[in-house]
Nucleic acid binder design. Sequence first.
DNA 1: ACTTGGCACTCAGAGGTAGGGAGTGCCAGT
DNA 2: ACTGGCACTCCCTACCTCTGAGTGCCAAGT
Lengths: 337, 337
Amino acid sequence: MLDDRKLAVLRAIVEDYVSTNEPVGSKGLVDRHNLGVSPATIRNDMAVLEEQGYIAQPHTSAGRVPTDKGYRLFVDRLSTVKPLSKAERRAIETFLNGAYDLDDVVRRTVRLLAQLTRQVAVVQYPSLTRSSVRHVELVPVADQRLLLVLITNTGRVEQRVIETQSPVTEDTITQLRALLNTCLDGCRLAEAPTAVADLPDRVAVDDRPVAAAVLSVLLETLVEKHDEKVVFAGAANLAAVDFAQSFRDVLEALEEQVVLMRLLGETGDSSTLTVRIGTENPHEGLRSTSVVAAGYGVGDQALARLGVLGPTRMDYPGTMGAVRAVARYVGQILAGS
Amino acid sequence: MLDDRKLAVLRAIVEDYVSTNEPVGSKGLVDRHNLGVSPATIRNDMAVLEEQGYIAQPHTSAGRVPTDKGYRLFVDRLSTVKPLSKAERRAIETFLNGAYDLDDVVRRTVRLLAQLTRQVAVVQYPSLTRSSVRHVELVPVADQRLLLVLITNTGRVEQRVIETQSPVTEDTITQLRALLNTCLDGCRLAEAPTAVADLPDRVAVDDRPVAAAVLSVLLETLVEKHDEKVVFAGAANLAAVDFAQSFRDVLEALEEQVVLMRLLGETGDSSTLTVRIGTENPHEGLRSTSVVAAGYGVGDQALARLGVLGPTRMDYPGTMGAVRAVARYVGQILAGS
DNA sequence: ACTTGGCACTCAGAGGTAGGGAGTGCCAGT
DNA sequence: ACTGGCACTCCCTACCTCTGAGTGCCAAGT
């Protein structure tokens, strides 16, 4: 269907269009790439590519522009992920090594990624459910108020206030704390609810109301999937682009946690790059954007995802290289801390 | 210098320009406001106002537009803060009451403020230094690694990892924890460093290296002023405005923590509204924006600030009302939790 | 069967021009 | 001190033309 030269032409069109942001014509193509044939021949190829839906004309008598389908083919078969330069690698290292807690790691990562790609970077906090309990802490903060602190092996710390019906003694707290930790230590968060289900039964009758209150808050914390935090940075880079739709839509989408989550896609294996181009995108307002995302995590288990959002007209090889490199490096950082 | 009518004219100009976004002329002015005089008279007044620098013409034969100086006068002497409607008050309550921890309070506040004003909202996390210690927790997370958790009376939780030279026993941790809490309980963070200065001297010789490590991390956490977190939301609302400079500049400024901090101004008394108009602004890229900010906190002590950023052409009375109301309400929420 | 040069055709964008209209400043009269 | 009248300015829009890049197609060449 598409011989080698036609593919080469498509690749050339994508590359030129990405770098110039102008519809590319047959003449310019043969000038810039040595294709060994005349413009007229290229025109024929282009006609075929257009018929098949890989490229399109903004209007008659203009050059061609890749369609989403064209970019898709380019990404799948015509490009290779571009490894980062030494300088870029070093930048990643120095930038991320200074981080001192999870919050800081995420903040730095998202800024780094935005800077590297000159686009909008999106980073999801390591998922709670896939990680495991490192420690549970129960702290009295007032007469009838406790603070529950949950620390996971990814360094994430969750806190919730618990209101109790009656004052709680120091002893009860100590007992509960010990109980919680024996039940939960090292436990996968996904399995935690069952591990603590019988908590109220294991304390003195007087303490049961308190235990129940603690339990309910704990469960709430554990199942809080929708709370998976996502942050973004580099919105300013959007200004450089002119989108099909107003980029108000894009900004609005970015401020919606839920949309952002879905944008990155399902958490799958680590280090698998996902590319979602234009209309492949779930969200209405992001029809003219593409997303390059990857999972990251400790070992080969992905804890969460991170990625980049930009115009469909994007340097895919470069962006993919940056995303992959950053994802790997963040994984290492998390494993080491 | 400026008689009452001239002031009324200026007020009318500001109001009209804010609502229509078009230079306002003498004819329209007398039509929409009953000033009781003819356009020609108004023209004379406008000439004076222009000469004094309160208004300007974009070009000859166009209407007048308020200058920064004009807005300043308007804010200082010609307008009153507009109280919110009942519906808006209720919205604030329902929106903020569901919050379950500090993070959530801040997140909700910033979104609420953005929605109410249809502009960019900026909220600073309650400052550490002004609040006091509610509890310190020390948790072993690995052989040679401790987690220090600091809980303040504003509900803020700070965590830091501590690396120790050698393994630490459970006993040592318990002792240190108790010691820290007796030293620090209820202590103002500003005074905390002196309160714990002698920590290493109060433990057994063997434990001193550990105590020193803990102490240094704790001090680090306490003095970490530059880390004052600031968040913003509602960037999408910027799209509706056309700025003098590219709004890339504005977005870039918003993503800089430092700039954002300075934007809100010095933390002063609670509930004092600060308005900074156009060039009064410290930052280069924000010369065509105004900031309305207020302190918020528990009681009359301001812990931090929050505010709104928008075009100089802004509904000042309404914005000021919203900022003031939200600041007060957040203060209540913090006090009650 | 593919490639090529030639050629007529199309159409977006740049640049130029004219007319309308909103607004002003000034002046003389009340 | 205010007002109506009037000449003037100049932005904005609509309309025009013209240029040039790019195309599709065809007939000839390999």
